[in-house]
Design a protein around this nucleic acid. Structure first.
Lengths: 196, 196
DNA sequence: ACCTGAACACCGTTCAAGT
DNA sequence: ACCTGAACACCGTTCAAGT
């Protein structure tokens, strides 16, 4: 709210916001540090104080993406729902996030979680996974989902969810097309491809 | 085999090979046209004759990736196998391709199939999908897979396969970890997450 | 046809310097 | 602490020119 240049004390947030705008407009590949700083009205080297290099900014953006995704899932979640409805709701929330943040999702997916990757990013990814796992574990305790190592059981819904969002992100499916097929997809996930 | 400079008449192939080498070493983001042409021993503008710009080269690379993936799946495929074994074999072939071509796969996944995307690329993607669909259709005819619109039934195995490969590509799973969990994953795909 | 070389308008990063 | 400005070593693309 002060009238002095708003990047005093808040340049980090301004850089992240500018980067996300640029991401939405032009994609991660065309994102330019100089252009972002120009938009903020600061010299092109000012970002160095807050992000050691361009990759550090992209990592921070991906981290914030995972945090927001996890929060979106948590907000949409209803622990009281039977598993089939619960997982449908979560899938829908994920798809909405994917639809509204296609470029961000692509950035999140493309970042490697190699040993030397950003710590905050790795932790944020792990928190997303832990959420999925907890949903499965609870459903197992209620006898709604097959028994077995939670990590193993979680893998199929996790890759299915991830793959579906990726199909939306890369244009193989439209957001609406994915939503239209979601109920059938979840049904097949629950009951399998083999005739009963 | 001739003794004259080998880029006569074969510069296009040399550019693609150089680009793929650079991709494997440094990733798509760090791929530089000037560096590639330098490696081939040709001026940095020579590529313009064969690829209108950098994106066109990347599109061609992604297209060749989809073609090789489809061929790898076709080579591994055994139409005589019962569906469970058949889909396991295909998953394994996909995982091997993903393991051996991580950077290429990332490039393939990140390219948008927007209306104005490269024609050859869109066609190559469609051929990969058609292959999956034909496997499902055949299994349906034998009564090994539930009935229904082949496109809808194919979606779950397709997103699961895609998601699993993406987990390998981005480091969430190691190649070995993915292989170790594959049998259980396919089992859950066939019989569902709900207790029978 | 196929390739070159110079020119143009950009990049990210480093570093001494300012306040 | 936080930011600037110049310098450096790169980019991709365009275009007239060579062979």
């Amino acid at each position: 709210m002060p009238h002095r240049p708003y990047h005093h004390g808040d340049l980090r947030a301004a850089l992240l916001a500018g980067a996300e705008d640029a991401l939405k407009e032009k994609g991660a590949a065309a994102l330019s540090l100089r252009e972002i700083t120009r938009g903020i009205g600061v010299s092109h080297t000012a970002s160095g104080r807050h992000f050691k290099d361009k990759q550090a900014l992209l990592d921070a953006l991906a981290t914030s993406g995972y945090e927001r995704l996890t929060r979106a899932l948590g907000d949409a979640d209803d622990t009281g729902l039977p598993f089939p409805q619960r997982i449908t709701v979560l899938n829908r929330a994920y798809l909405r996030f994917a639809t509204e943040n296609i470029e961000l999702l692509e950035l999140m997916f493309s970042r490697k979680h190699t040993p030397d990757a950003d710590e905050g990013l790795t932790a944020a990814v792990e928190r997303s996974m832990a959420f999925m796992r907890s949903v499965i574990t609870e459903a197992q305790q209620r006898g709604e989902v097959i028994e077995g190592d939670p990590d193993q059981v979680t893998l199929l819904p996790a890759v299915a969810l991830h793959g579906l969002a990726a199909f939306v992100a890369n244009g193989t499916l439209t957001p609406q097309g994915a939503l239209d097929q979601l109920d059938q997809l979840v049904h097949n996930l629950l009951y399998g491809l083999t005739p009963r």
